[in-house]
């Protein structure tokens, strides 16, 4: 489905990605791990059409995604939950979800999508008329995931969904991702929370300094000594 080859991006003279190659297959959960500033968000930005890469290929179902206008990318079946959620804070939960189904294809399936989101996050049904700004971080993250699901995506991409959220709610969000995946949606999860991400990912890539420095099966990576030392901290390496 999603294939990225030799992707290079830079902000001015500062390189952010140097030759990144990775792919996400249909129905997979793939995690992209790495420290702050590794280029994870830049990579998502490139796929979503917000950042123009210097070189490389991003293809989606064999179509060159770089030639597609950013607002039409959603219509192709890729939805992004951006870092920091980026909700429309002055609007209601319902309006935010509604805007998620803005593209013509998604609008046709609006009602079913809304029911699916409410089934996944029952809290949102009762809070549908509340202004998003007034919700807690975890609830806002649910709205953000819900808004992306409203686009009826085949690939859901999330940038740090666990950031700044109470641990209990992180679990709920991650459980929801597994459930979404069971319904046939591929998930591309960008995370700093390595342990959490690896518990659900089928495969994972490790990005450092704009390069892919490792990849493997999720559970295997979780046992990998190097990954434990580098990303899970000394305590984990010891135990």
């Amino acid at each position: 489905m999603l294939e990225i080859r030799g992707l290079e991006a830079a902000y001015g003279d500062v390189p952010a990605l140097s030759g990144v190659t990775l792919r996400v297959g249909a129905g997979e959960i793939v995690a992209l791990l790495g420290p702050n500033g590794a280029g994870k968000s830049t990579l998502l930005g490139c796929v979503a059409g917000l950042v123009r890469p210097r070189a490389g290929i991003i293809s989606w179902d064999s179509e060159n995604l770089l030639a597609v206008s950013p607002h039409r990318i959603v219509e192709r079946g890729l939805a992004v939950v951006p870092e920091g959620r980026r909700l429309f804070g002055s609007m209601t939960v319902e309006d935010n979800l509604d805007l998620g189904a803005f593209s013509p294809r998604a609008r046709a399936a609006r009602r079913e999508s809304l029911e699916r989101v409410f089934a996944l996050f029952p809290d949102l049904r009762t809070r549908r008329r509340q202004i998003v700004r007034a919700l807690s971080g975890g609830q806002q993250q649910m709205v953000a995931v819900g808004r992306a699901l409203m686009a009826s995506p085949r690939l859901l991409m999330l940038d740090e969904p666990s950031l700044g959220i109470a641990p209990l709610l992180v679990r709920r969000i991650l459980d929801a991702l597994v459930e979404i995946n069971r319904a046939g949606v591929a998930v591309f999860l960008v995370e700093q929370n390595v342990r959490a991400a690896l518990t659900l990912a089928h495969r994972a890539y490790i990005l450092e300094g704009g390069r892919v420095v490792g990849e493997g099966e999720g559970p295997a990576l979780l046992r990998d000594a190097y990954v434990r030392r580098a990303y899970l901290g000394p305590l984990a390496a010891g135990g």
Binding site: L50, P82, R86, D98
Partner: peptide
């Protein structure tokens, strides 16, 4: 529909793009 899209674009044009709004 487009009224909401206009408000969304005013609030965060990048997020608006991500939801598929032709800003």
């Amino acid at each position: 529909r487009w009224g909401k899209a206009i408000r969304a674009t005013a609030e965060d044009w990048q997020a608006a793009l991500l939801t598929g709004i032709d800003i």
